[in-house]
Amino acid sequence: MDTATAPAPPARGKAGQSRPTGHRHAFATRLWHWSNAVTLAVMLMSGLMIFNAHPRLYWGHYGANPDPAWLDWSGGDGIPFPGWITLPSFYSLADARLWHLAFAWLFAALVAGYLLWGLLSGHLRRRIVPGRAEFAPGHLLREVADHARLRFPPGAAARRYNTLQKLSYGAVLLVLLPGMVLTGLGMSPAIDAGFPVLVDLLGGRQSARSLHFIGMALLALFFAAHIAMVLLSGPLDQLRAMITGGRSVTDKEKQP
């Protein structure tokens, strides 16, 4: 770490807001990012094994083999997801549930904790919610074009998330991740008894299962795009920034 640019202790600004330090990523963001990465990996791999137990998806309250499925991967050996991507790698619904239902607690706590921190610290408002000007068609088109040409902003602009980042991070944080918790709970027969409004809003238990699966697919898609963007925009700097917080970008701006 370059001590020369080490930030002064964060001075408290207006109520509950910490003044931006020299770090690109707040400590809470880094801590959450990595614990969430591990948790999501376990949830994904054990979840795919659970899906293997009944690789058909339905809409509505009920759905089983005699009923029409909107997605049916039960052909072949009937086990769509191979061992290298499931937890455990051999077929075991019981073991997958052991992991999935334990890490679900961690996952939900991490999502709730980070959202709460994001709200209270102003992080969500300052860094995730796009400003009105960012929605201007010209601005959005330029960002899309920049992304397509893999042109990433240098210097100070890299300290802020661009609009496409804000929109995708916002969708993941505020919709997809809480949605995975809610659709997961919607599949629990006990929770459905206590909170029938949840399963009704989701359209029934089988719809909740379908939405849980679609949410997983969207998160996997986000993960792929996220990794691609990190690899294309200087993976070492990006990784270091997400581990140490990153050095102050002002240094770079001084470079020719």
Binding site: H61, R97, P189, R205
Partner: peptide, 12 residues
């Protein structure tokens, strides 16, 4: 009532 199998399917 709805019967929920551990495998994931449901029948009423």
């Amino acid at each position: 009532t709805r019967h929920d199998c551990v495998e994931g399917w449901s029948a009423i």
